[in-house]
């Protein structure tokens, strides 16, 4: 993981972080501990997310291939050629076979989609908890404490904002993929084209953003908040 440039190289180790975690009030600790949990969850989700995406690649490639086969097969005018006369229902059989295979690949993708959905839900919940925890305790935490940031520990406000941003991005990305799968049909050329071209659009951006936020919070995550 890339470390944030704002952090000096020698600024590591428990002593430095001790200084940062000088929490003035009990309320602030509560919020920070919730944020700690949330970012831990985000970190876990990110690895799950990446794995799921990687696992989708193979079946997606298959789907693309099968779609091409499906389209070629349905477009082919095989009834008229003499060679296939002994097998009159070959086109139907072939299409059925392709369909079955497609179903299988799609179900594999759907399994991965379920994982993405879980990530989405988990991040959403954590975002909600963190915001709730902050809003409940906000009357007791002075604003300068909320905005206070050190080289190793970001401000509460920033972390909350990042969490919301991550939640938004993940939600959008998941629903984009879901929409593409819904619109997909081997008979519909547009849907297939869309799936091929748009599936991984924005994936890298999402991963980069989340990794960036995680790297800002890397020291904070190493800390134990009591």
């Amino acid at each position: 993981m890339v470390k944030p440039s704002a952090v000096p190289d020698n600024a590591s180790g428990p002593n430095f972080c001790q200084l940062v975690m000088d929490i003035s009030t009990n309320e602030e600790t509560k919020v920070r501990s919730q944020l700690h949990k949330s970012f831990k969850a985000v970190k876990n989700c990110l690895s799950t997310w990446k794995e799921a995406l990687a696992a989708c690649q193979q079946p997606l490639y298959q789907v693309e291939n099968l779609c091409e086969q499906h389209q070629c097969c349905s477009d082919a005018n095989i009834e008229q050629s003499g060679i296939i006369k002994p097998f009159p229902d070959i086109k139907m059989r072939l299409l059925h076979k392709i369909d079955v295979e497609l179903e299988e690949q799609l179900s594999r993708i759907n399994v991965e989609m379920k994982k993405l959905d879980n990530c989405c839900e988990r991040i959403g919940k954590h975002c909600h908890y963190s915001m709730k925890s902050y809003q409940e305790n906000s009357p007791y935490i002075p604003l300068d404490k909320v905005l206070e940031q050190t080289p190793t520990c970001p401000a509460i406000s920033d972390m909350l904002e990042w969490l919301q941003q991550i939640e938004r991005l993940v939600f959008q990305q998941y629903h984009c993929k879901k929409y593409l799968l819904e619109m997909f049909s081997p008979k519909n050329k547009d849907g297939t084209e869309n799936l091929k071209n748009t599936w991984s659009l924005g994936d890298q951006e999402l991963i980069n953003t989340v990794e960036e936020y995680l790297s800002y919070t890397s020291f904070f995550l190493e800390e134990k908040i009591t």
């Binding site: 902050y134 809003q135 906000s138 909320v146 909350l160 904002e161 919301q164 941003q165 938004r168």
Partner: peptide, 20 residues
């Protein structure tokens, strides 16, 4: 994102929690 960024003084004047 539906956000607006203000300085600390203005946030204090508005007197509402962040994210509202």
């Amino acid at each position: 994102a539906q956000r607006c960024y203000l300085g600390p003084r203005e946030i204090t004047i508005l007197n509402v929690p962040l994210g509202s």
